[in-house]
Design a binder for these strands. Sequence first.
DNA 1: TTTTTGTCTTGATTTATGTCATTGCACAGC
DNA 2: GCTGTGCAATGACATAAATCAAGACAAAAA
Lengths: 196, 196
Amino acid sequence: MSMEAAQPLIDYFQKIVPLTENEQQWVSECFKPRLYRKRQFVLQEGDVCKYFNFVVRGCLRMYKVDDKGNYNTLQFAIENQFITDAESFYNQENSALEIEVLENAEILQISHSDLLKLYDFSPKFERIFRIISQQNAMFLQKHLSQVLGMPSGERYLYFEQEYPQLVGRLSQVQIAGFLGITSECFSRIKLHIKNS
Amino acid sequence: MSMEAAQPLIDYFQKIVPLTENEQQWVSECFKPRLYRKRQFVLQEGDVCKYFNFVVRGCLRMYKVDDKGNYNTLQFAIENQFITDAESFYNQENSALEIEVLENAEILQISHSDLLKLYDFSPKFERIFRIISQQNAMFLQKHLSQVLGMPSGERYLYFEQEYPQLVGRLSQVQIAGFLGITSECFSRIKLHIKNS
DNA sequence: TTTTTGTCTTGATTTATGTCATTGCACAGC
DNA sequence: GCTGTGCAATGACATAAATCAAGACAAAAA
């Protein structure tokens, strides 16, 4: 694959720390582009999460299926976002989650061992992935604080406000799974809020 | 304060990456020990989270108070654990959360600017805090996947299994706040599970 | 000792949400 | 044109959980 496949990711990194030609070269070599179609899986339950994923284009979701078959969604990812089961990837152990493609997607993937090589090649990558991990933790912390104990009406408003670019792109069922409510409940809340 | 105040933290770091004498010295100087009494606050809503906190001894919780006055708890922290409002600390903006001391505690605190100095002093600290951030993200991801859409019975079992060392140390109200349920519900669930 | 305080339990009731079933609609494929 | 498919809306009903209230109990304070 040509060098420019990794360009969106290199641009992303450069906003954090400028990279030398050589470092950019390493990024291009370590991150492999891959195309996925809608409904395919980047990660399936029981498998090890082999790659740290960067979305160049498309849309994905990561969720846990519970006993009743509900899709409890932890995260969506669109252009210029990362999506990875942190626990499975860093510990290289079997995952309890799935990552599914919602819209045909182009992904840049780095393996665990290649990421370790990248860290050793330049401390800049340590910094970049420290910051990415921090941002990931911030996102999870914010989301947790919103869904924990909040009534469904507030969760709906929070989603609309926090992720306006996702509202038109996802189905109600998908958003509901992210907020920990059913799609029927979601539908009723929408009606209730418009009327108030 | 004497040099050995930071020793538990240095030991913690050494398990990730061995440190030179000089690096240990920097840790001792950047992290300031502070004593807190039960019911005091390390962070109050509306303030900026000035410090990244490491618990040497004691017990703390971080929570968001909602409209109804519930304590929606994101995290507990005991010996050898970190507790910080990531969003407020990294962005140095006002916090929506509080960090409260549940048992008299000894904390090691580093300011945001001192942490940046530490990063610039040695890339080892980039690595250490990358790994700490990863662990934090893993914890949050796991907790989110458990409380999102899971019935209260399963949340209870999950807590007992995942945090046995906390069960005897926290009150039911405190655990319930972490699981996103009321203490009455928690009490009934306990009864129900023993009988089955 | 008695009082106070906090925690847990238990019951009665209300409320929010889930569940199940049905309908309508838009869209893709034949 | 149909026909299937997926998604959203809505109604009827069931159920889980919150709420409100009371009482038991233990530990700490007076």
